[in-house]
Amino acid sequence: MMKRPLVFGLCLFWALVTLFPLYWTLVTSVKPPTAVNGGPTYLPYIDFVPTLQAYIDAFSGIRGDFISPFINSSLISITATALSVLFGTMAAYALVRFEFRIRLLSGLIFAALAIGGFLLFNETLGFSRAQAMGLAFLLALPACLLANRLPLPGPVLGNNDVLFWFVSQRMFPPIVTAFALFLLYSEIGREGFKLLDSFLGMVLCYTAFSIPIVVWLMRDFLAALPVEIEEAALVDDVPRIRIFFEIVLPMARPGLIATSLITLAFIWNEFLFSLLLTTSEWQTLPILLSGQNSYRGDEWWAISVAALFGIAPMMGVAMLLAKLMRSGLTLGGIR
């Protein structure tokens, strides 16, 4: 008897906890400076007279350029999300439907040849670092693929190990990758191919960093799909790639949308890579936001406006996609 009101009360409490910061940002953005710097004020028209001055300031550009980071963030996050969901889903599908057997030793051969090859090309043969890296990779990859076909001794890794390898890339702190990426990008930049502070560079690093999450999420969605539907198509001589695009992807739509949403939010909000890998041209919104209080001090009304610029598009996308994310799409295909 007492349970329902209790649960309702707890839910209400939690809703308030999550919604209050949003409300606080919203009202702060319409407060005049006096209403911010005095004691706390909560209700517009009662505690203070709202003003749109902060918005006018933001659009007039006196708080820095909002428009180009916004466009940068949109372009980079949409492109990187699309790429990582596409390739990640393909990888997840492969992990669900095909059996991989990877010899640990061939992986070690890759590592040895990549590192050894780099040292050889760079230090002995005098190639530049980026060239040596590229050459070592070209040497190590085919060698390890060939080695995997030989009956090498040692443990053989299966699909779950491959999945773990994907996920493990997200286990260490991102700063580790961020520094390595910065060095890699600047070495490649020295060869005349600009990756630092470029669209391509940002899309590449976000795609690479998002794929593990996509693989991990999509694997479960794809594993839940009935294999018989694909088998029916196989018997009907439908090529695997068309099965993937025309049958599997439509059936996995709810999962694809959920995964895209998570990936998009991650890339949209990502700070560290953007901080290290961009300088001016391709700066993203989070960098702009973090720089807000250094422009003219703690002008919280202005910072709130900037924060809302970062929040609003994501909320819009989430609401739109949630509508599309009706489940039960495979209903009827099988009993």
Binding site: E228, E231, V235, M251, G333, R335
Partner: peptide, 20 residues
Amino acid sequence: LRPGLRNCAMVFQNYALYPH
């Protein structure tokens, strides 16, 4: 031969229709 080249048609227990 792969399934598609055997010119068989198969009907499954759970129908296996394309739901979309």
